[in-house]
Design a binder for these strands. Structure first.
Length: 425
RNA sequence: GGAGGAAUGGCAGAGCGGUUGAUUGCAGCGGUCUUGAAAACCGCCGUACCGAGAGGUACCGGGGGUUCGAAUCCCUCUUCCUCCGCCA
């Protein structure tokens, strides 16, 4: 969430940013309420401190008197203390109510977009940041979509997934499972080579963790929830990885912190069945390798570009046609300040599929998480960034489609040492 | 799942209900000394909020309670350790 002081000191910037996101009028009203509530919070806090100071002083006096045996005088003071106690309880209630309301409203305010974020309402308004420089592959009309190729070569089985679990839970088999594992190993090796520490985090997280990265309270419906134990299945490794540094004051010398991890990702995607979600286009469980960085605020945009190039290099090595979009205000995630989406061209479906999202959250997550770094005497919030490098299901889909041939699906060169075979036939 | 024990500052480890935000050691930072380093010695060394400042308030796992006053007493939750049971 945003810091109240930031809102106060950058009011115009905040309003302009919200405008860029095309938020509703009530969000603008919330900004005004936040500033008012913060004012009352301050004066309530001042009063409470004063009352408590009085009480502490009186109590200390009573202590001294008791030692000196002046019982009667002490009795008078006790009555005075009783009054201050009443008052402090009253103010304290008001204060905590005010703080609660304040936090509630702050949760409603999305991150302020970076200046480079284009104005816009939705996917059509995104800016093509880097287009595919070559002609798009044209496989002709006989090209098969990945779900047909998958059945043909036994790569994955969605029907079986329905039997075992339900719709959207693919079962990878044989060479398909091996291809999946090859991609995981390839992506992890690439990330490790780029200096990211490999981490295997828990796949279920508690409420504090889900709140830290912004999945709660606004994206509650997206996550699977294990009610009995109050745990959420992670929608991305971003959640457990970033939260490693929740409530931590990091040493300046340790920045940037670079972490990577492979995890299955679970997404409910409620109510999103239909023509565009066939095959692996949208599933409830998929594997993803995530890269996360915790950065100095002055370095974070430089680092964002570094992460963008890391993802671009992966797609380059796989030989997949892709483009990079700079998301517009209306299409960007709630917590992000700047997001680049990577889309791979799926030659048989003749559409672009999102395979990665690389974002800088600036201090939006770190403020919630109280993730800070120490620069000498100075302590300030760190910037958090993350990106998919990469999301597997759709990469598999596009490899199948783009690399199909009469002989079978040709495995990209870089994966062959991991798969142990060079064609899916 | 059952029975006991524990939770204090980066770590270790004190703390009769009353000037204890908290003794001490280590680590860290600054300094003296040294050609440099080490050793020795001196000083500093938690976080947040309110306040122009002086200063104040809160926090000893989380939440609640007793009391004029709680790190210290009570309740509750969580986590860790030991033992038993179960188990990949």
């Amino acid at each position: 969430m945003l810091q109240v002081n930031f809102i106060r000191n950058n009011r115009e910037k905040v309003l302009a940013g919200l405008n860029k996101r095309n938020v509703k009028e009530d969000i603008f009203q919330a900004i005004e309420q936040i500033l008012q509530l913060d004012d009352s919070r301050k004066s309530l806090k001042t009063e409470l401190d004063q009352v408590n100071a009085d009480r502490n002083r009186l109590s200390a006096e009573i202590g001294t008197m008791m030692k000196q045996g002046q019982k009667d005088a002490a009795e008078d003071l006790r009555k005075q203390v009783a009054k201050t106690k009443e008052r402090s309880a009253e103010v304290e209630t008001q204060l905590s109510e005010t703080e609660e309301k304040l936090t509630e409203l702050l949760y409603l305010i999305p991150n302020i977009p970076h200046e480079s974020v284009p104005q816009g309402f939705g996917a059509d308004d995104n800016e093509v940041y880097r287009d595919w420089p070559h002609p798009l592959p044209d496989l002709g009309d006989k090209a098969q979509p990945h779900w047909e190729l998958a059945s043909k070569y036994g790569v994955f089985d969605l029907e079986l997934g329905v039997k075992i679990t339900g719709a959207g839970f693919p079962v990878y088999r044989g060479k398909g499972a091996r291809l999946e594992r090859a991609l995981i190993n390839f992506f992890l090796d690439e990330a490790t080579a780029a200096g990211y520490e490999e981490i295997m985090p828990p796949l279920m997280v508690n409420e504090d963790t889900a709140r830290g990265t912004g999945q709660l309270p606004d994206k509650e419906a997206q996550m699977y929830f294990v009610e009995r134990d109050n745990l959420y299945l992670i929608p991305t490794a971003e959640v457990p990885l970033t939260n490693i540094y929740r409530d931590v004051i990091i040493d300046l010398a340790d920045l940037p912190i670079k972490m990577t991890g492979h995890t299955p990702c679970f997404r409910r995607e409620a109510g999103s069945y239909g023509a565009h979600v066939r095959g692996l286009n949208r599933v409830h469980q998929f594997d993803k390798i995530e890269i996360v960085q915790i950065a100095h605020p002055e370095k974070s945009y430089e680092i964002l570009m570094e992460m963008l190039e890391h993802v671009a290099a992966l797609l380059g090595k796989l030989g997949l046609p892709y483009r990079i979009l700079r998301l517009c205000g209306g299409d960007m995630g709630f917590t992000s300040a700047l997001t680049f989406d990577f889309e791979v061209y799926s030659a048989a479906q003749k559409r672009w599929l999102e395979v990665s999202s690389v974002s800088n959250f600036e201090t939006y997550q770190s403020n919630r998480m109280k993730m800070r770094f120490r620069d000498g005497k100075d302590i300030q919030l760190a910037h958090t960034l993350n990106g998919s490098a990469l999301a597997l299901a759709r990469i598999v889909a596009s490899i199948l489609e783009n690399n199909q041939s009469p002989e079978g699906v040709v495995i990209p060169e870089v994966l062959r040492k991991y798969t142990g075979f060079d064609i899916l036939a």
